[in-house]
Every structure is written in structure tokens, then in C-alpha cells.
Amino acid sequence: MPREPDEVINKELSRINLHLPRQKKSLARLLEEENPSIKLRDGSEHHFKKSELEFLASLLEEEEKERLYIPIILEITTTWHGYFKVRGTLAVKVVEKILGTYDILEEKKELTLPRYLLPKIRRMLPTTTTYAFIMG
């Protein structure tokens, strides 16, 4: 039976962010786990690569591992076409270190970057970053 268009749209919109984590975990906690993973909103498990977590740990100070929550969310909003956003001081630090733009004197809470930089980040952090689609 054909469904109402509104029903289809609402279902699509509610489905679009089901891959986001139910609860994030700190890097320090994930490094201690035998099988580092988190539960997603749709109930499934998302596993992290240990090598990737170790790489992230190498980018941060010892005490910062407790404060970086994984996965890092790359926000894509409809209002900023061609850009994406990263929020959180430590998440920004990690992203900037990967892109080679980190400046120790600047402490940014959020960062807006052009979308063509996404592959570089995703290539380095395929399991510890995730996308979030936000309706503007």
C-alpha cells in the first residue's frame, strides 16, 4: 500500500542519525577495553580499531585522554553547504593535528572546515569519527 509522503519523509529524517552513539566513551576507557566498542542509537554495536585509538592517544597529553570522548562527531548541516563542524576543544585539537594546522597558542571550542578536508580525516580516523546530519 502506498504510504503518505509525509510518513516517508518523517521516517527518513528519524532514520538519518540512527548511527550516532547512544553514549560516548572516553578515550582512556576505550584504551582499557579488550574489544573497544559503543552501542549506537539503533541498538547495534560499533567497534573501534585499537591502532586508531592508540594513534589518537599519541596526539594527546596523558590527562586529555580522560576528556576526549569517542567517536568524534563531524557535523554536516544543511545551512552550511560545503562545510562541516567539529565541536569540543580536544576534538578540535585532534582534527587540527591531523590536518597539520594545530597552533598551541589557540584553543578553539569549535571549528568549521571545508568539506573537501573530510576524506583526509576519515582516512586517518575511519572508526573513531562519525557523521551527524543536522537540519538547519
Binding site: 509522503p5 509525509d6 527518513e12 538519518i16 554536516i76 544543511t78 568539506r115 573530510l118 576524506p119 537540519m135
Partner: peptide, 21 residues
């Protein structure tokens, strides 16, 4: 409804672009 559908369309298009990337 058109407003909602246009927003949905934009969002899905963003998802499609991200998937292709």
C-alpha cells in the same frame, strides 16, 4: 509539507554527498 519535504530533500542530499565522498 513542502517546507518539510524540501528540508528532508536537502538533508538526504547531504547524506548522499557524504556517502559518495
Amino acid at each position: 509539507r513542502i517546507k518539510l519535504a524540501s528540508k528532508g530533500h536537502k538533508l538526504l542530499k547531504e547524506k548522499q554527498d557524504a556517502l559518495i565522498m
